[in-house]
Amino acid sequence: MFSGYSTMKYTEYKNPDKFLAVCRPVFMEKEPLYGLMLGITLRLIKHTHYYGGQPLLATIESETGLDLIALMTPPYKLQVASPNDYSLEAIRLLASSLHENGWHVPAVMGERKVVKAFEANWNEIAGTRSHTGMRQRLYELRTVLPIKIPGGSLRKAQIDDLELSRRWGKSFYRDCFGDSEPVANIDNLVKNTIEEGNLFFWVNPEPVSMAALTRPTIHGVSISYVYTPPHLRGNGYASAVVACLSRHALESGKKFCTLFTDLSNPTSNSIYQKIGYDPVADIMEIQFTDAKSSAL
C-alpha cells in the first residue's frame, strides 16, 4: 500500500508467471484486446530477457478487483490497460510508483482515455513533455474472406534469408514508427522469429513481401512485420501474404488472428478489412521527452 492510496495496492512482479496468474482472468475474458500483453507475457515466461533488459510487470488492485495492468519491455513503450471502470486514482498511483521506482517511460500506449490520463500525470510527476504518436487500430480475424491473389506462393523464411529479413525488418520499423521505436534489437528479434519458424515471404519467385506470426496467445496469434519494398507495392503482395498466413494460422489450430494498423494509412486498413479483419479497438500512443532537453 502507498500513503494516500489506502484502498489501492501497486505491485511489481519479477516473475512473469506470478504476473500472469493475477492477470490471466482479465486477459482471457477479452483475449484479442489484451493479446499484445498476453503474448509478451507468455514469451517472457520462456525467456525473461527476450527483449533485452528487465521488464516491468505491474498491477494496481483495489477492493473491486484489478484496476490497472502495466507492462513495459525497455527500451520499448509502456502498455497500460484498465479492465474495470476508468480510475484517475489508479492512474496517478501508477505514474507516481513508476517514477518513485526509477522507471524511464519513453512512451505509453493503450486506449485513449487511459493514455491521456497517464500523460497528464506523468508530465506532472516526471517533469516531461509529450506529444501524440501513432494512432493505431487493433483488428481481429476469425475467417479469411476470398480475395484476388497475385502470382506467387507463401514460403517459410530460412536462416539463409537472414540478411534480407533483417534489412526488411528495419525498414518495416522505420516505415511504421520513424525514429520513435528502437531498432537496435531488430536483428535478434528477426533471427529468433526465423528460428521459431514464424517468418514468411510471398515469393514470385523471389521474395516480394514479408509477414510474421508473433506473440501467440492461448487461442490466437498476431501478424506483424508486414513489409513490401516500395518498388514492389501496388501488386497485392501484402494482401496475399497476410491472407495466406492468416489462413495458415487458423488451419494450424488458432481461433483468431490479430494485427495493428496505422490509422493514418487508409490503404492498409481497407486491405485488411477485405481479408476479413474486423476492428476491435483504437489504440493511442503518447511519446515523452525530457523537458530540459526539449527546451535546448
Results as ranks from 00 to 15, higher is better:
59 T>R: 01
156 K>M: 07
74 P>A: 01
189 L>S: 08
155 R>H: 02
54 Q>H: 14
103 W>E: 02
262 D>R: 00
249 A>I: 10
166 R>I: 14
32 P>K: 07
142 R>L: 07
125 I>C: 07
201 F>G: 01
39 G>T: 08
35 G>Y: 03
281 A>D: 03
232 L>H: 15
252 S>P: 01
6 S>L: 05
199 L>K: 08
47 H>S: 11
123 N>P: 02
270 S>M: 02
143 T>I: 09
203 V>C: 10
106 P>I: 07
164 L>S: 06
196 E>S: 09
288 F>T: 01
164 L>V: 07
206 E>T: 10
212 A>V: 06
227 Y>A: 01
101 N>P: 00
178 G>A: 12
69 I>D: 05
274 K>E: 03
85 D>H: 12
174 R>Y: 13
3 S>R: 13
108 V>I: 15
144 V>M: 03
268 S>Y: 00
141 L>M: 15
151 G>K: 12
171 S>T: 10
86 Y>L: 15
194 I>K: 02
259 L>S: 01
101 N>G: 04
69 I>E: 06
267 T>D: 00
150 P>M: 12
38 L>K: 03
96 S>C: 11
19 F>K: 07
222 S>G: 12
247 R>K: 15
18 K>L: 14
76 Y>W: 03
270 S>L: 00
11 T>S: 09
192 N>P: 02
230 P>I: 13
290 D>W: 08
